[in-house]
């Protein structure tokens, strides 16, 4: 495939995931509202919010890094997505996944987070820094079970290549990692609760305590960009999880179905639980999920 065509398909696939991710966000808001006995906003509300934010007439900036923070963030989201093959077997929806393996994806996730943290830092608001410190602290903890479960996959499949991991799961749903390596999946799914930052791990944005955390100073099109990234990044993470643990997707429909239900897991948990403090969530992640992850590795090595 020529590089131009590749780029065009990458854009198309990016558009798809953005729309799907934002829709998912809308659905999530709806679900939360219903859990609380409300009607909730329309499913397309995230789109309107993004338009409105981009349409703000004024904006302020605290400096160059503040300005670039959202750019880093969305570049991290898009980049993460770009390094994941979206639909198994499809040359059109494989993005630039040939650039590297799952390690690249795991580390590229940090790109956006780091950039955002820097931007928020230059905002000069103490709450931004407080939230970043919470976020980073929590991140170190929840990445451990996730990393362990990825390592467990390596022990299981002998590869870091995402496409190969999906390929190994083909042939009926019983071949999914979910069933062949359930412990690793449990560890990873718990770690996903932390990644998605819904309750009980929402201390980072804690709106009532440190007004919404890192983006406290962000507004207008900056915020619009961050909101767009919420869609892309959520989509990318879900697709990654789907690829690693739920057999991947061979078409767009099964992609939507699977990612929807993967997402619903953390949404349901988030809707039902109260919030952990930072040190509690660190302790939590480093206890049970980590132990489960280690056991899942040991099962495949011994």
């Amino acid at each position: 495939m020529s590089i131009t065509l590749k780029l065009i398909w990458a854009f198309i696939s990016l558009g798809v995931v953005t729309v799907w991710g934002l829709t998912l966000n809308g659905i999530v808001q709806k679900i939360f509202a219903r859990v609380q006995g409300r009607l909730g906003p329309p499913v397309w509300q995230p789109f309107i919010d993004i338009i409105k934010n981009n349409a703000k007439r004024t904006a302020i900036t605290h400096g160059i890094m503040f300005y670039l923070g959202p750019v880093f963030r969305i570049a991290g989201g898009i980049g993460t997505y770009m390094f994941i093959p979206v639909i198994f077997g499809s040359v059109y929806f494989s993005n630039f996944s040939m650039s590297g393996d799952v390690l690249l994806v795991m580390y590229f996730i940090f790109f956006g987070q780091l950039g955002m943290a820097l931007g928020a830092g230059e905002g000069g608001h103490p709450y931004s820094a407080v939230a970043v410190s919470r976020g980073l602290a929590q991140m170190t903890a929840f990445e451990v079970p996730f990393a362990l479960s990825v390592i467990s996959l390596v022990a299981q499949y002998g590869t870091l290549n995402i496409t190969e991991i999906i390929a190994a799961q083909q042939g009926g749903f019983l071949q999914w990692t979910l069933f062949t390596n359930p412990l690793a999946v449990i560890a990873a799914m718990i770690s996903m609760l932390g990644m998605n930052m819904y309750n009980p791990f929402s201390v980072v944005i804690a709106p009532q305590e440190i007004p919404i955390g890192p983006p406290t100073e962000y507004h207008s099109s900056f915020l619009g960009m961050l909101a767009t990234n919420r869609g892309i990044f959520a989509g990318a993470k879900l697709i990654l999880f789907m690829n690693l643990f739920f057999g991947g997707a061979t078409n767009l429909f099964s992609l939507m179905l699977k990612t929807f239900w993967i997402y619903m897991f953390s949404v349901f948990v988030g809707a039902a639980y109260p919030r952990f403090r930072t040190e509690d969530s660190i302790r939590f992640f480093l206890k049970y999920p980590t132990a489960i992850g280690i056991i899942s590795i040991l099962l495949f090595t011994l």
């Binding site: 959202p70 898009i78 980049g79 770009m82 040939m98 650039s99 393996d101 002998g158 960009m225």
Partner: peptide, 25 residues
Amino acid sequence: LHGNWNGNLVMYVTMGVFIIPLLWL
């Protein structure tokens, strides 16, 4: 273990995904 890493391509992709949002902003 199978795996791969193409630092050069990663660099280009990253530059691409960085510059486009920057221009938009």
